[in-house]
Simulated scan of single mutants.
Amino acid sequence: MKIILNGELFEIRLTEYTDRIEKLEEEKKEISDQIATVYQEAESKGFNKKALKQALKMLKLQKEERDLQLELTTQYLEEIG
Results as ranks from 00 to 15, higher is better:
21 I>W: 06
53 K>H: 04
67 D>C: 04
11 E>S: 09
78 E>H: 09
79 E>Y: 07
77 L>S: 07
2 K>D: 06
81 G>W: 04
15 T>F: 06
67 D>Y: 03
69 Q>E: 08
54 Q>Y: 07
12 I>C: 06
41 E>R: 05
58 M>V: 02
10 F>V: 06
14 L>S: 03
36 A>V: 02
23 K>E: 05
18 T>C: 10
38 V>S: 09
52 L>A: 07
35 I>A: 10
7 G>F: 01
81 G>E: 08
69 Q>I: 08
26 E>W: 05
73 T>I: 15
17 Y>T: 11
54 Q>G: 13
52 L>Q: 03
45 K>F: 14
2 K>H: 01
58 M>P: 00
28 K>N: 05
36 A>F: 07
13 R>D: 11
32 S>P: 01
55 A>L: 14
48 N>E: 14
11 E>Y: 02
55 A>F: 13
73 T>H: 04
27 E>V: 07
76 Y>K: 04
47 F>R: 06
35 I>M: 02
32 S>V: 06
19 D>W: 05
62 Q>D: 12
10 F>W: 12
50 K>V: 14
50 K>W: 13
66 R>T: 02
78 E>A: 15
33 D>S: 11
76 Y>S: 14
51 A>I: 09
9 L>C: 05
30 E>S: 14
2 K>I: 11
75 Q>W: 08
13 R>M: 04
61 L>K: 04
81 G>A: 13
60 K>H: 06
16 E>K: 06
18 T>E: 15
24 L>W: 00
52 L>E: 01
25 E>C: 01
6 N>W: 03
12 I>L: 14
75 Q>Y: 10
11 E>C: 02
50 K>N: 14
65 E>A: 10
4 I>P: 00
11 E>K: 09
78 E>I: 13
39 Y>G: 01
30 E>P: 00
9 L>H: 00
47 F>W: 11
33 D>E: 14
